[in-house]
Write a protein that binds this DNA or RNA. Structure first.
Length: 321
DNA sequence: AAAATTTGACCTGT
DNA sequence: ACAGGTCAAATTTT
């Protein structure tokens, strides 16, 4: 038992190191990406860079999940001893830290009384990112190529704009419990806070994040054509997701009437035209979209894992268990 | 007709 | 009691 725990902790330590390295790589690439963007040219080089970004993205996702799985195992014992799984720090500034622990509960809570048995439900990886749009009405970067279904919207205390809640369209058909929250930041209307909970276990998720699939099953062999085929199936889903699913009502926090005006844009949400046609469905495109449409390297640079990767933890992960 | 969104009510944690 | 998160009926869109 004890040896087992030590093994897990060693695993966590190793994963944390990997994650740290990926972050460094990511930070480095954020810099080069910016240069490339400013340079404007660099077709092939940019393509390679995007591939690297996509790889980093998927790597982080895998490590992310692995760390969390290992940590949740270790944390069981730790919690029993009165300890606490170190939660993410209060999201700097206007965030709502009080919800950090409970916001993942929803997927398992249900309306009834299933809460008792599903006490340990806070194991879904949580990833936070910020996405900048180029215009107030431009929400293209919020399309991550996955199909989300909006299930709620809430005014947040002290926040200027409401927060929208999305979950995977295939939640019921494929038991995919991925969800995300999107909220326009107070200070910068062009900037959105996007918090992902869990990762897609549905087919579209596997298509967009191949590493995620390969990490779980041997679908690593899933050939590119398969991914392309996946893309065709994902495309319609994306179109439906890219349009209506977008949080247009996030444009303002107005009453229903005014909101309806914004909703009217749903049928043709992109006043500037059809940027949607370049909708991403592959990791490369996805990252490109994030990095390119985002006027800054923010999309990659701001990726922030919500795990307790503070200095202490990095120094001595075992002390947390 | 089916699917997605909206929105008020309800539930849970603090 | 309050705030955040989710549900589900009603409504809208495709």
């Amino acid at each position: 038992m004890e040896g087992m725990s030590e093994e897990k902790c060693a695993l966590v330590a190793e994963l944390v190191r990997m994650l740290d390295m990926v972050r460094q790589l990511e930070a480095h690439m954020a810099g080069t990406g910016q240069q490339q963007q400013q340079g404007g040219g660099g077709g092939a080089a940019a393509g390679g860079d995007q591939r690297c970004r996509a790889l980093v993205w998927t790597m982080r996702g895998s490590i992310d999940r692995a760390v969390h799985m290992a940590m949740s195992c270790c944390a069981d014992g730790r919690r029993a001893a009165g300890g606490q799984l170190p939660e993410s720090p209060p999201s700097g500034g206007d965030g709502s830290p009080r919800s950090a622990g409970s916001d993942q509960a929803g997927d398992f809570r249900g309306r009834g009384n299933a809460a008792g048995q599903c006490k340990k439900k806070k194991t879904l990886p949580k990833r936070r990112t910020q996405v900048r749009v180029s215009a107030v009405q431009d929400v293209t970067p919020l399309d991550d190529g996955l199909s989300w279904r909006k299930y709620g919207q809430k005014d947040i205390l002290g926040a200027k704009y409401p927060r929208a809640y999305f979950r995977c369209t295939h939640r019921h058909t494929q038991s995919c419990h991925a969800s995300k929250q999107v909220q326009r930041t107070d200070g910068d209307p062009l900037l959105f806070d996007v918090v992902y909970h869990g990762s897609h276990t549905c087919t579209q998720g596997a298509a967009v994040h191949p590493a995620a699939a390969s990490a779980e099953h041997s679908q690593a062999q899933k050939p590119q054509p398969a991914a392309a085929a996946e893309q065709t199936t994902a495309s319609p889903a994306f179109e439906s997701a890219a349009g209506p699913v977008l949080p247009f009502s996030l444009l303002s926090n107005k009453p229903a009437g005014a909101d309806h005006a914004a909703g009217g844009a749903t049928s043709s949400p992109f006043p500037g035209g059809a940027r949607v046609t370049a909708s991403p469905a592959t990791p490369e495109c996805l990252v490109q979209e994030l990095a390119a449409t985002t006027n800054s390297p923010m999309a990659m640079g701001e990726m922030d894992f919500m795990f307790p990767l503070d200095a202490d933890f990095l120094e001595n992960p075992a002390s947390y268990f």
